[in-house]
Design a protein around this nucleic acid. Structure first.
Length: 268
DNA sequence: TGCGCTTTGATGATAACGGA
DNA sequence: TCCGTTATCATCAAAGCGCA
């Protein structure tokens, strides 16, 4: 068929809704669209879906704009009409406990200290989780790790742009298997905002311990980059701390904060 | 046996660009 | 301007393995 991709996306969204598949996933939509346009790959369809979704930024704009879909969670969508009718819309969790946050002001990069346990960043309350304390040498300096040396690299992969390190190793001691938005604060300034499904896993199995494979092309560059920045900061005598805003609506909160302000270690 | 570490690969989000 | 493509960033899930 010769319809534009966005028309196929819309048709599929309607079909899935009629079949009772709601919310439907991005994958559901892609598979459906590919039945009509078998030559279309996910790389082509994904930005179209984004461009049709009212509460997602960016994407490939179409003639109808962001008027057809509504995101109700990571990778989950409903038809916009269904969302605005009320029953399917997932209300942001913060609406019940706090007012709509304002724009992130310049001074939010140096957050408002509510107490030694709570910071306010862009209108959201973040609780103190821990100081980030990398493994140290006997002389008190931060111990350097170069896990890339342990990788066999049979495929002769190049190091990724942050794979050279050096890296540090750290853990957060508290077990917080909760979703939300975390903030890395260094020297009293917010440097990084990120989202997670499980805070402990994100740090103890992600940032805090760099896998050899992650140092190479195709590895998790972000883990390398943030770990190295923490290594550098702590090595310079700065204090790095982790703060956490627990919410099931972490995608929205993170997007909100990052859309309104630039933080030094966030890239996009 | 259970836990933690490592690795791979999938999925989703975003920005920027090019062609008609 | 509309439509589509490409590249990149970011996160997560799951499997395999080793060790206590």
């Amino acid at each position: 068929m010769s319809d534009a991709i966005w028309k196929c996306v819309y048709r599929c969204a309607q079909e899935l809704t009629q079949q009772g598949v709601t919310p439907f996933t991005r994958g559901d939509l892609i598979r459906c669209v590919q039945r009509y346009k078998s030559d279309c790959g996910p790389g082509s369809i994904n930005p179209i879906i984004q461009g049709l979704t009212e509460n997602l930024r960016g994407g490939a704009s179409g003639a109808v704009g962001k008027n057809l879909l509504h995101s109700v969670g990571r990778g989950q969508f409903v038809l916009r009409g269904a969302a605005t009718s009320g029953s399917l819309e997932k209300k942001p969790s913060w609406t019940s406990v706090r007012s709509q946050p304002g724009a992130v002001r310049e001074q939010d990069k140096r957050p408002t200290v509510i107490s030694h346990e709570t910071l306010e960043i862009g209108g959201y309350a973040f609780k103190h989780i821990c100081d980030i304390e990398p493994v140290k040498n006997d002389d008190g300096t931060v111990r350097e790790f170069t896990p890339q040396d342990r990788y066999e690299n049979t495929g002769r992969l190049a190091l990724n742009r942050y794979g050279v390190g050096p890296f540090c190793k750290f853990k957060i001691s508290r077990n917080i298997a909760r979703s939300g938005v975390y903030a890395l604060v260094v020297d009293e300034y917010v440097y990084y905002i990120g989202e997670c499904e499980n805070l402990t896993n994100r740090f103890n199995m992600g940032y805090g311990n760099i896998s050899p494979r992650n140092c190479f092309a195709g590895g998790q560059e972000t883990n390398c980059r943030i770990n190295n920045l923490i290594f550098t900061s702590v090595s310079e005598g700065l204090k790095a701390t982790l703060w956490f805003h627990e919410t099931s609506d972490y995608k929205q909160v993170e997007s909100d904060l990052r859309a309104r302000g630039k933080f030094g270690w966030n890239r996009t």
